[in-house]
């Protein structure tokens, strides 16, 4: 009996030791150090006199906590652009994980009376009231990407164009196929999560394709994640034995879409991506996959928002425009990145 129990304890000791060893090895494996991500800024000094230092301004900044690459780039860009100006001090408050958290931190920010505040709300409708308060207190609001329903709630709206993304992708695909003389092309679409912005993108895509007399043959929606991209792409490829072109809404899920295409050994078509992630720009530049272009929805808008906020706070207009003040609304064009211009977009990839 004693012999037995000693054996048992030795076995337990061995097991325990192995478990502790494995645990140490594992915890050593969570490090994720990659080269610091480059940020998108406009160097001070190029362009018109807008960059000449003006009066010192304090810019408040609030955006949702970064939950994916795009939002991470928004935060990084805002910080980097503010640091590029000697006359700007950035006060970033935690945007939290929901509208309520964002409202409360925005309240404290307003109490500190910065010169201007840049806000990317969780949901325009839910943060509208706080923005209105700030405007009434004399602090201008720059509304980034997700618009407030109330026009009085912001001095400037700067946002991306989801419908335009679809239009850009549709025109690129339509023109390529028209030039090739494909009569009845088979066009696949891998959409993102079915939320309003995805519906807008798809509407723009369909509208642009229609101008060429083309339409989408099969559409699957993934969830903006690479594994869902792989899953839906694999099924789409199965449904369409011969394809001429594919538009994939999001470059992050595009990693999985490209994997599925590679796993199926298909290469008779070309693909257009969406967003403008660095991996996609690199692949377009290398030109060794079916990915031939991507249409942007660029987080560089955070940098531009900071630049414009600075000008508004200093009471200056945009250098090349005649008006003495910054315009009220800026909608970024969705640009198309191809092999030819990929190098100039590299610094904007996130």
């Amino acid at each position: 009996m004693t012999q037995h129990s000693r054996d048992l304890s030795r076995r337990r000791l061995l097991f325990g030791g192995a478990a502790v060893g494995a645990a140490t090895l594992l915890t050593a494996c969570t490090s994720n150090e990659t080269p610091a991500a480059s940020t998108q800024t406009k160097a001070a000094g190029d362009g018109a006199g807008n960059n000449a230092p003006g009066k010192k301004v304090v810019i408040g900044f609030s955006a949702p906590a970064a939950d994916h690459g795009w939002m991470g780039a928004i935060h990084a860009n805002a910080k980097a652009q503010a640091a590029a100006y000697s006359d700007v001090e950035l006060k970033e408050v935690d945007g939290g994980s929901n509208s309520e958290a964002q409202r409360s931190t925005l309240g404290t920010l307003i109490a500190q009376k910065p010169d201007i505040i840049v806000v990317l709300p969780h949901d325009g409708k839910e943060v509208n009231a706080v923005a209105l308060q700030a405007m009434q207190a004399g602090i201008p609001i720059v509304n980034l990407d997700r618009a407030f329903p109330d026009a009085l709630a912001s001095r400037l709206v700067i946002k991306g164009d989801n419908y335009g993304m679809g239009v850009s992708a549709g025109h690129f695909i339509g023109k390529q196929l028209k030039d090739k003389g494909v009569a009845n092309p088979v066009i696949g679409e891998i959409a993102g999560l079915e939320i309003p912005l995805t519906v807008e993108r798809s509407a723009g895509f369909a509208a642009a394709l229609a101008t060429y007399g083309f339409k989408v043959s099969n559409r699957r929606s993934a969830e903006f994640t690479s594994d869902s991209g792989q899953r839906e792409a694999a099924q789409l490829l199965q449904a369409l034995p011969k394809i001429d072109a594919i538009w994939n809404h999001d470059d992050d899920q595009g990693i999985g879409v490209l994997a599925a295409i590679n796993q199926a050994g298909r290469k008779e078509f070309f693909m257009v991506g969406g967003a403008g992630a660095k991996v996609a720009i690199d692949a377009i530049k290398a030109d060794n996959t079916v990915l031939k272009a991507t249409v942007t929805y660029n987080p560089s808008m955070a940098s531009s928002a900071i630049s414009l906020a600075r000008l508004i706070a200093q009471g200056r207009g945009l250098g090349d425009l005649t008006e003495l003040q910054v315009p009220k609304e800026v909608t970024l064009a969705s640009e198309t990145i191809t092999k030819e211009n990929a190098s100039s977009y590299e610094k904007l990839g996130f």
Binding site: H68, E223, F224, T225, S226, D227, S228, G229, Q230, R231, D252, I255, G256, L258, A259, A260, Q263
Partner: peptide, 12 residues
């Protein structure tokens, strides 16, 4: 292996 990548939102 299928997605040649991983992320926190996978296997949703």
């Amino acid at each position: 292996s299928q997605a040649t990548s991983a992320q926190a939102a996978m296997a949703n």
